[in-house]
Simulated scan of single mutants.
Amino acid sequence: MTDIGLQYLCDLVNQQQSDTLLVADEHLDSTTLLSLKAHEQLTLLSNRYDVYIAATENNITCIFNDMDLSELNRKFDLILYRVSKEKAIVHHIINQAPAALKDHGQFILCGFKNEGIKTYISKAELYFGEKADISKGERQLKIARFNPHALGEALDDRDYKQLSQIEAPGKIEIFSKPGQFGWNKTDQGSLLLVDALKEFIHEQTEPPGNVLDLGCGYGLLSIMAWNLGAAKIIATDNNAAAIYSCRKNFQHHHIIGEVIADDCAASIHHQYDMVLCNPPFHRGFDTEKDLTEKFVRSASHHLKNSGTAFVVVNQFIPIEQIAALHFKCIEVEKQNKSFKVVRLSS
């Protein structure tokens, strides 16, 4: 489904001939992206690798990083941003906008009422030292235009750029940061998968060889698989903050393997003895069950014939039906009121 807020900004971009930066995350789907008219003065910044690949393929200058405007090494006449799902990212972008604008440059922020846009606008007004020019779009969309000049106190972005240690099972040291799903906690679904993985490995004659952590986040499943004896781990994610955090954890735990930015392992062509996956089921503020099918399909492509995949999903996801299209053996290994772990094999 096309995001109305982002489509509004894309329409504005297509009317511009000045140096323009569009900041986008998971809201930017392929249909909206294709509506953009590539020109030399347009730059797209995204923390999503799939957006970066799609933009590049359509001749749109795109930078893939963890929402760091300073890495662009230039200033813009116009910066457009449709608010993200995570508050820390929104505050981080607002805080950076003035330094990335030319003199008399304009920052445009948009979002919906149920996403907290009214509060974001109020906070930005205090920080930018001016009242916003506010207009309305469809379905309670609000668009705020700013010309920042007298900066006040920066918004709390939870020290966005900094890695911090989070609580983990068994007092294992794990580092994470804002900008990725569940960044400041250990996901209960992943922990349930780890329990199933422990039992499975203890029943085997030897631990798994090569493991693929599909949608790795900050690398919890990779770390636990390594501690259970995995020989080598390849971790991949679509999100720049996840890649940054996971690489730190690989270094800290001396994990043999690699952390790769990719869209659901699309450019990874090897097969593995084991695939571990806690797939997302949200795109921005919307729920998309197709994401689960995408990850299950990728797991089947990347698993050796003799291999085993473990996937954890929320109880309401019909994983058994989805997996039946790609695997012969489907067993629910563990479940509770919220999650279920399935073991998949050919």
Rank of each mutant, 00 (worst) to 15 (best):
A97P: 08
Y127C: 03
H39Q: 12
F310W: 02
F175M: 08
Q140V: 08
D3W: 03
R247A: 11
N336K: 13
H269A: 06
H270E: 15
A242F: 02
Q162H: 14
M274Q: 08
K102T: 13
G209L: 12
H92T: 02
Q17T: 15
L191D: 04
L220P: 00
I233W: 03
G209H: 09
N305W: 09
S345M: 12
V341T: 10
G257W: 06
H252R: 11
I233C: 05
A54M: 12
D11R: 07
D133W: 10
K340R: 12
H301Q: 15
G5R: 03
T292W: 00
L72G: 01
E115L: 02
D237I: 09
Y218T: 00
A144E: 09
K248M: 05
A240R: 01
Q335T: 11
I317N: 01
H104T: 13
L303V: 11
A231T: 10
N47H: 14
V90G: 01
Q96I: 07
I322S: 00
Q271S: 14
I234W: 06
K177L: 10
L9Y: 02
G219H: 02
V194D: 00
L191K: 06
G170H: 09
Y52D: 00
A88W: 03
I94T: 04
D19N: 15
N238L: 09
D68M: 14
R158Y: 07
V23E: 01
R48F: 07
G152K: 13
L45E: 01
K113M: 09
T292V: 15
